[in-house]
């Protein structure tokens, strides 16, 4: 059975959204699709997943393969940039998709640049130096 829920989501709430999806899954409702502010869930009380959302523009197949190899199943995406992944909640060997603060910071910068570019197309993307 499919359950639909309408929910406005804003970019800075990624972590809250992940927690909400994980909590929904714990209750047996697993995200299948996200379209036009609507979450489509599939009901299965026997399963439970952890959800993670990644912001990435125009990833290629090696991106999806790497996540798959690492234990993350690609579920759905929104506007081609927010990618929803899940892994079995019981898997303790699969942690988070970002494992250090620098890469979390980088992903926020990518997201911020993306939103800024929507407002001002002329804005050049800042270059980042260092590792």
């Amino acid at each position: 059975m499919t359950v639909k829920k309408f929910r406005l989501r804003t970019a800075p709430d990624i972590e809250k959204e992940e927690q909400w999806l994980t909590e929904m899954s714990r209750k047996g409702l697993h995200l299948q699709k996200y379209r036009f502010f609507t979450y489509h869930f599939e009901e299965d009380p026997t399963k439970s997943y952890k959800y993670q959302i990644d912001f990435r523009q125009g990833p290629k197949k090696d991106y999806f393969q790497l996540y798959k190899d690492a234990g993350w199943e690609h579920v759905t995406e929104s506007i081609g940039t927010f990618h929803y992944f899940r892994t079995d909640a019981t898997r303790s060997d699969v942690q988070k998709i970002y494992s250090d603060s620098q890469s979390i910071q980088d992903s926020f910068v990518r997201m911020r640049d993306f939103y800024l570019s929507l407002f001002d197309r002329r804005l050049p993307l800042p270059s980042r130096e260092g590792l």
Partner: peptide, 9 residues
């Protein structure tokens, strides 16, 4: 343990 997001970036 490195996450795939960290590694890909």
């Amino acid at each position: 343990t490195m996450g795939p997001g960290t590694l890909y970036g």
